[in-house]
Design a protein around this nucleic acid. Structure first.
Lengths: 109, 109
DNA sequence: CATATTGTTTGCATTATTACGAACAATATG
DNA sequence: CATATTGTTCGTAATAATGCAAACAATATG
């Protein structure tokens, strides 16, 4: 699929969310858990709660996760619609290579 | 495919390279061009040459592109091996969602 | 109702990113 | 050889990102 300028900006925005190892860990954690409270996420990371909260906020901002208050706790999870949107965008972006460059690069795999 | 901690760090590193709209544009440009000199790339962007050079340097650092000096000019192109590696990594990462979260999120698409 | 538990928000400090102009290097050209 | 062309590197300024501790807020519990 072709990718336009707006979509390329979205690629950059999603990539920005994924550009920090902590946030990648959080997403990986959420993608493989049934229950995902803030405390569980925090326990998994060597960071203070404020920092964890901040990373979660950023992931929420791009929509990759969503939080749900449950009593005094907060339950987080992947927003599957956005997750799939990001997945598709990256796939489209990387599919866009037409291999036309005439540099003397190593070709093929 | 399963993805381990080292691969997740690579996801973050590649994502970091893609986290800037200018760099995404550069990659898109290179992925769709036969000849790709520095001057062509610069012409495509509203930035001074120093800044463009800096972004190219960063993309080279993660290996997504490579430069080749040709007389007084420099020819840049996608490093297809790294390109495919990144593509695979993102695909593996996004494939890792097991959908187990019990939040009251909208399910499905 | 006082206190504990769970997270978020605020206020910093530190470091990284982005951009620019100027200086520099290397090749080409008159 | 002097000068133009093409990029890179350096120095610097402005802004963004990261992390922590402390202050807050909201719910739960004795």
């Amino acid at each position: 699929m072709e990718i336009d300028i707006e979509e390329r900006k979205k690629v950059a925005a999603f990539a920005n969310a994924l550009s920090n190892p902590v946030r990648v860990e959080i997403l990986y954690f959420l993608a493989n858990r049934k229950d995902c409270y803030f405390g569980d996420i925090k326990k998994d990371l060597p960071l203070c709660k404020a920092t964890v909260s901040q990373h979660l906020k950023e992931l929420k901002k791009v929509g990759l996760i969503q939080g749900e208050i449950e009593g005094p706790k907060t339950k987080y999870c992947i927003n599957i619609a956005k997750w799939n949107e990001a997945r598709q965008l990256f796939d489209d972006f990387f599919s866009g290579y037409t291999g036309g460059c005439s540099c003397n690069c190593r070709k093929g795999k």
